[in-house]
Design a protein around this nucleic acid. Structure first.
Length: 471
RNA sequence: GGCGCUGUAGCCAAGCGGUUUAAGGCGAAGGUCUGCAAAACCUUUAUUCGUCGGUUCGAAUCCGACCGGCGCCUCCA
């Protein structure tokens, strides 16, 4: 049975979805004003794994990730570039989808955009106003936090402490410094939508309440996001949705730890970030995912080149096995031995690990243990039946591919030199074989070195020489 | 100041009361195989879990104090 740490109760809880076979999940997506960084990627990837594991567990998951395509930063940056906010946001939304796919994340079922839900948002604000939880000050509409008794439950804060805190902005229009904007009046030149309060745009928090409600319902199973969203974003969403729907909002709240650089939070404002796009130029998606899965999703994690390189190295162990499996599968050898391997045991361990609040580090360890046993079995047995490789592949596909996304069975052309002719490689291998038979090792090594320089690595085995492309 | 996270080998990181005289990965050392490589496999690499006390038959795991790192409280994954 799966248990999940719920930020709301600050405990691990047994996962029991509202509907027995179906899970509704909402993840706070990007504000499309820039490329997302590798820290953002950690949240998205871990959310992706949570979703995939729940699917693996037998549930149907409806997964929604919002795209915030109107907000202050978008307007500001679009202005700086002298472009229209709409095409500006679209450009980065497209970039988001590209990077998202490159990181091997499974597409959400729906990507609601704020600008496409204006009617729902406005309706919600009107309704909040009607219920007495919102007030209009000259075209700016605020949520009256003092009216909502449970405010602070998620983040473990209480209103009095927050008020006495010195870091809250002073805004003359607000009754209470904690009140937050539901509707922002448009300044001249800013994009706007018409409403009963005048021309303006929605505050950030209301869009998630509106879109999650519309696409997942008033009360749904999982809402996830980075740690920094707990307060005020998610707290505010709760305040809005609970009042509007008069029922609880979300059953399980999941929050992801930060990715740090030298023990400091990676963030746009600190400037210490790498875009996912740039990191992907140097490391494979699988290495990035392996790196993230080797740590607990809730804790902080340091990012460095050295660490990523280590993950990339660890991945080679998988890749070599994958190459071997693909090769064997192409042969279809029957009437041979099928060595015994207790796959069930590994699957049980994998499930036990993931069931324990998505302990991916443990799950990855199970995969490494499995791979080690498979390699040992291959080394110790000759004439292995293809059936064995099929079983091994099936297990890896179900776990390391479909859930964790750290292994890839598809043959990818990693060659830096795409013009290399395969026939040429074959010829060189044959030539080297002759040289080896004549014990002309100097020539054999020279050929191997030359191919290596072209990005082709040779491997000799009893069954002949194989090659693979390397970066 | 309030709330929360965190301190385990050279590095990263699981474990959170007995099944562990502490998983897994990277790195390092030795070995098997090989003409040599590469890969793979085998062996070694924490008598110890920030420090000091306490609870317990038993603690890395619970409690207390102390020391250190980080985050949120303002937009932020």
């Amino acid at each position: 049975m799966l248990s999940i740490y719920n930020t709301l109760s600050k405990k691990k809880e047994l996962f029991e979805p509202i509907n027995p076979r179906e899970v509704k999940m909402y993840v706070c997506g990007p504000t499309v004003y820039d490329y997302f960084h590798i820290g953002n990627a950690r949240s998205f990837i871990m959310a992706d794994i949570v979703r995939r594991y729940i699917e693996y567990s037998g549930y149907k998951v409806t997964y929604a990730m919002n795209i915030t395509d109107i907000d202050d930063k978008i307007i500001k940056k679009a202005n700086e570039e002298q472009s229209n906010y709409k095409s500006f946001a679209e450009k980065y939304a497209n970039a988001f989808f590209e990077d998202y796919a490159k990181l091997k994340m499974k597409r959400a079922d729906i990507y609601p955009k704020a600008t496409e839900h204006m009617e729902d948002i406005i309706e919600m604000i009107e309704s909040l106003e009607k219920k007495g939880y919102a007030y209009n000050v000259d075209g700016n509409v605020f949520y009256d936090v003092s009216k909502f008794k449970e405010y602070g439950n998620l983040s473990g804060k209480n209103i009095d402490d927050l008020i006495s805190g010195a870091r809250i902005e002073i805004n003359e229009e607000k009754k209470n410094p904690l009140d937050f904007a539901l509707w922002k009046k448009a300044k001249s030149g800013e994009p706007y939508w018409d409403s009963k309060w005048g021309k303006g745009r929605p505050g950030w928090h209301i869009e998630c309440s509106a879109m999650s409600c519309k696409h997942l319902g008033e009360y749904f199973d999982i809402h996830a996001g980075g740690n920094d969203l707990i307060f005020p974003h998610h707290e505010n969403e709760i305040a809005q949705s609970v009042v509007l729907n008069d029922k609880p909002f979300v059953k399980y709240w999941l929050h992801f730890g930060f990715l740090n650089i030298e023990n400091e939070k990676m963030s746009k404002s600190l400037g210490n970030f790498f875009t996912a796009r740039d990191v992907l130029k140097r490391y494979s998606a699988e290495a990035i995912r392996l790196f993230f899965t080797q740590a607990y999703y809730r804790g902080p994690l340091n990012f460095s080149d050295e660490l990523l390189a280590g993950a990339e190295k660890g991945l080679e162990k998988f890749e070599n096995l994958v190459d071997k499996i693909n090769l064997e599968l192409s042969k279809n050898q029957t009437n041979r031995v099928i060595p015994e391997i207790d796959i069930k045991q590994y699957e049980d361990k994998f499930i036990a690990a993931m069931d324990d609040d998505f302990n991916t580090a443990q799950a990855v360890a199970v995969i490494f243990d499995f791979v080690k046993e498979v390699n040992r079995t291959i080394a110790e047995n000759e004439n292995i039946n293809t059936e064995f490789y099929k079983k091994v592949k099936l297990f890896l596909e179900r776990t390391a591919v479909d859930v964790l996304g750290i292994i890839n069975f598809d043959v990818e052309d990693k060659s830096a030199n795409k013009d290399l002719d395969v026939n040429f490689i074959r010829q060189m291998i044959d030539k080297r074989k002759d040289a080896k038979e004549k014990k002309d090792y100097a020539l054999a090594d020279k050929i191997r070195d030359e191919l290596k320089a072209l990005g082709v690595e040779l491997k000799d085995s009893k069954e002949g020489t194989t090659y693979k492309f390397v970066k």
